[in-house]
Write a protein that binds this DNA or RNA. Structure first.
Length: 774
RNA sequence: GCCCGGGUGGCGAAAUCGGCAGACGCAAAGGACUUAAAAUCCUUUUUCGCGCAAGCGGAGUGCGGGUUCAAGUCCCGCCCCGGGCACCA
């Protein structure tokens, strides 16, 4: 039933959520070796900003926050393996971040280039594509990001794009469908071809990417993105230059989906590589520099956008694909493009081929002739990791005027952040202003050189911390591969949906890089992923990075940690978003008091008791064990587990007077054990109070006795024509005919059946009777 | 536009494989205990109609159809809400 191989459970990324802790405690009671550790984020920017406001050192501030979080989690009673905790702002963690960076640099997986990057004015730093949400910074939802050209370090996640996409097929079993779908969407694979169109009277070639090379005979123009490097060469007059600049500025300002298509003829032409004719070269604002080659061939007859553009600018429309059983459209008069696959026409020797075959043969031809090749393009871009922040791991690179970018040698790692840095938030790394940090000599030639002043994205930290905490004190390697081989892949990862295309892609990438470095043998970090719902506060999601998290300390002080935990588990099933509304917290407090009262006042119970009451109490007990066990083993709907514990408690109150001392002891012991994963403090106290020793969550989980759980009689609803009319009680296994006659003997049933003809009788044994009458 | 979720009482929700809709809890109302309050305990609480009452009957899971003895659950067509991607060639 459990989706884990027996014996061990590695739970990753369990934050301050009661879900993972309840599961860990339960699995301990089932005898598993559970790794239930904790990694502490540096969570740079909020700390940096807060420190700035408070006039304190960011490092000091962050360490205080980590200490506070740790204390809070201890107050809440999380059964974390504290010996394995790590903090990602630890210098030793920096060392291994930097070590990985150098390894990647040496393999060409880390590179530096100038690019247009997303700049958040509020953060004062650039962001990766994954960190831009609706055109705004993921931390500042109302601050639009700007585009800035900057020198940046990138990690080549695109080298792994194909594998990251394909491996999603294997993750589908254990990962939520929507996360898999979001990642597929984000990686965005298109299969097609790249084709060169030589510019007429020039040495330049314009390379385009297309998924529909079968339509290439219908290409009546080339369109370049306004930012395309060739545009500057093709356009010579000032007015056109101005108009191109306007296009760039307008598209940066506006919502990309709603911008009107605008174009500009360059006055130049290119040669069509298949038929040798001349086609005009245009600049179009709807062509994206960042996708494919930044240039397209316009096939208006078979593409919606090209159609719109070409009709607006009077570029000819030439149809070259006809439907399987239809006529070729007339480009001059067609009202809309024909987008589907069909049969290629008017395309020289390829005429008559179906689209799919033409795509294969034409791209093979392009390759053979040397003017193109089959190609796969991904939507995902390389991961820009430079940040102009104080907080974060310094990028271990030294710029030497002679040797260029030189990695810091391994024995000089870690490069640590200087202390006493003035944080301005003005868009340059604060480290630049610290000469002792910046000025070094080149490790290769000794010439005076400068350090890289940017720090790494803190998503680097979270990409592999769950490896490090398996072996947190290792000072000769990031971790011992043998330890990892035991614990990995993670059996159960628990995290928020907000990281579906951030952390959960980065950490998959990082795992594959470490595998290729020979450090780990698993291909994926986590087999099973559970995404718990967001906690909302008046409609907006609470998150650590936004700093709008409710501090549980107030509730803990008033009701205690157990009530607090029960409240979060009981409010809704864990995958569902939950609005933080404390009104129902009283109910959890009452429930714990009722359990406490019941157990403590029955400790010294003596006597024989009433057999019927005892049987009913034990029956409810074993039904509850079945229910709670089932919830743990399948779907973690702890709201219903807790509801069933409440039902059990209500039943015990009902039969309390009649319980014998033996039965009272039995029900109390098992109630405490079942409460332990959810309310550990209360359970532990009651465990000791009832004369036991040791940690309650190391006790074996209660076993179900199916005989005791069984009801004496089956309660069978009787329907007439599908409407409920009566109930009857009968022993389990009563034959269908007997049930039928019992049902017909009931007065309430008679009232609806008499005078009518019984057409059909449906009997579901022990479950239901339905009489169909006419 | 494309891809995921979701829509059940005043509220959070339950109904796990097509078989009694509303478990459990909150809030509310009434009662017991109390000088009083808190705490605790008990009762009522989907809705409409009939009845003094125990009760009886009808309707009801976003809307409209369908399949079935039986639909919150399955199928078809819509509406609304949330999330992701979006001029991706």
């Amino acid at each position: 039933m459990l989706p884990y191989p027996s014996g061990k459970l590695h739970m990753g990324h369990v934050r301050n959520y009661a879900i993972g802790d309840a599961l860990a405690r339960y699995m301990w009671m089932r005898g598993f070796n559970v790794l239930h550790p904790m990694g502490w984020d540096a969570f740079g920017l909020p700390a940096e900003n807060a420190a700035l406001k408070a006039g304190r050192e960011p490092r000091e501030w962050t360490l205080t926050n980590i200490a506070h979080m740790k204390a809070q989690m201890q107050r809440l009673g999380f059964a974390i393996d504290w010996n394995r905790e790590i903090a990602t702002c630890d210098p030793e963690y920096y060392r291994w971040n930097q070590w990985f960076f150098v390894k990647m640099f040496e393999r060409g997986l880390a590179y530096r280039k100038e690019a247009l990057l997303n700049w958040c004015p509020e953060c004062g730093t650039v962001l990766a594509n994954e960190q831009v949400v609706n055109g705004c910074c993921w931390r500042h939802e109302t601050t639009p990001v700007e585009q800035r050209a900057m020198q940046q370090w990138f990690l080549k996640i695109t080298d792994y794009a194909g594998e990251l996409l394909d491996a999603l097929n294997d993750l589908e079993n254990g990962w939520p469908e929507r996360v898999v779908a979001m990642q597929r969407n984000w990686i965005g694979r298109s299969e097609g071809a790249e084709v060169d169109f030589p510019a007429t009277n020039s040495d330049e070639k314009i390379r385009v990417f297309t998924t529909r090379i079968d339509t290439i005979y219908g290409a009546t123009a080339l369109i370049l993105a306004p930012e395309h490097p060739l545009v500057a060469q093709l356009i010579t007059d000032d007015e056109s230059r101005l108009r191109v600049k306007e296009m760039i500025d307008a598209s940066a300002r506006q919502d990309p989906g709603s911008v009107e298509k605008v174009g500009l003829f360059t006055g130049k032409h290119a040669t069509h590589p298949f038929h040798g004719g001349q086609i005009p070269i245009w600049v179009g604002n709807f062509v994206l520099l960042g996708y494919g080659t930044g240039a397209i061939m316009a096939v208006p007859a078979h593409d919606e956008r090209d159609f719109e553009f070409c009709r607006a600018y009077g570029i000819p429309v030439v149809a070259v694909i006809r439907p399987q059983d239809g006529e070729l459209g007339d480009g001059a008069t067609m009202a809309e493009p024909f987008l589907e696959y069909g049969i290629v026409e008017n395309s020289g020797e390829w005429s008559g081929l179906p689209s799919a075959e033409a795509r294969r043969k034409m791209s093979a031809y392009a390759k053979a002739q040397g003017f193109g090749e089959p190609s796969i393009t991904y939507r995902i871009k390389d991961w820009g990791i430079s940040r102009q922040r104080y907080w974060g791991t310094p990028i271990p690179i030294i710029y030497c005027p002679k040797c260029g970018a030189v990695p810091v040698p391994e024995q000089d790692l870690p490069v640590l952040l200087p202390q006493n840095v003035k944080i301005t938030g003005k868009g340059r790394s604060p480290l630049e202003a610290v000469p002792e940090f910046m000025n070094v000599s080149c490790p290769q030639c000794g010439t005076a050189a400068k350090r890289e002043s940017d720090t790494m994205d803190t998503f680097i930290d979270s990409s592999w911390y769950f490896y490090r905490y398996c072996d947190p004190h290792n000072n000769t390697a990031p971790f011992d591969s043998n330890v990892i081989a035991y614990w990995f892949p993670i059996d159960q990862y628990i995290g928020g949906i907000t990281h579906a295309i951030l952390h959960l892609i980065y950490s998959r990438f990082w795992t594959k890089v470490m595998r290729d470095l020979g450090l780990v043998s698993n291909n994926e970090p986590a087999k099973n992923l559970f995404t718990q719902g967001m906690v909302l506060m008046g409609g907006t999601a609470m998150s650590k990075s936004k700093g709008n998290v409710v501090d549980p300390d107030v509730m803990v002080a008033r009701y205690g940690a157990d009530t607090c935990r029960l409240y979060t588990l009981f409010a809704a099933p864990p995958e569902k978003d939950m609005d933080w509304n404390e009104s129902s917290v009283d109910g959890q407090f009452r429930f714990l008091k009722r359990v406490y009262t019941f157990v403590t006042r029955n400790l010294d119970r003596a006597g024989e008791g009433d057999a019927d009451a005892g049987r009913k109490a034990l029956r409810k007990l074993h039904q509850t064990i079945r229910k709670v066990t089932n919830d743990f083993d399948s779907r973690w709907h702890f709201n219903t587990s807790i509801a069933s514990l409440m039902e059990l408690t209500n039943t015990l109150y009902q039969y309390e007077a009649g319980l014998s001392c033996v039965v009272a002891r039995e029900v109390c012991t098992n109630l405490i054990l079942m409460l332990a994963p959810f309310a550990p403090y209360t359970a532990q106290e009651l465990w000791i109070a009832s004369g036991n020793n040791g940690p309650v969550f190391r006790q074996p989980w209660p076993a179900i006795d199916p005989e005791l759980a069984k009801e004496d009689l089956a309660e069978i609803p009787v329907q007439v024509n599908g409407k409920l009319r009566a109930h009857l009680q009968a022993p389990f296994g009563t034959p269908n005919e007997d049930l039928q006659s019992l049902a017909l003997s009931l007065d309430k049933v008679k009232a609806f059946v008499d005078g009518k003809q019984i057409v059909k009788v449906i009997v579901v044994p022990d479950k239901l009777i339905n009489l169909v009458v006419k």
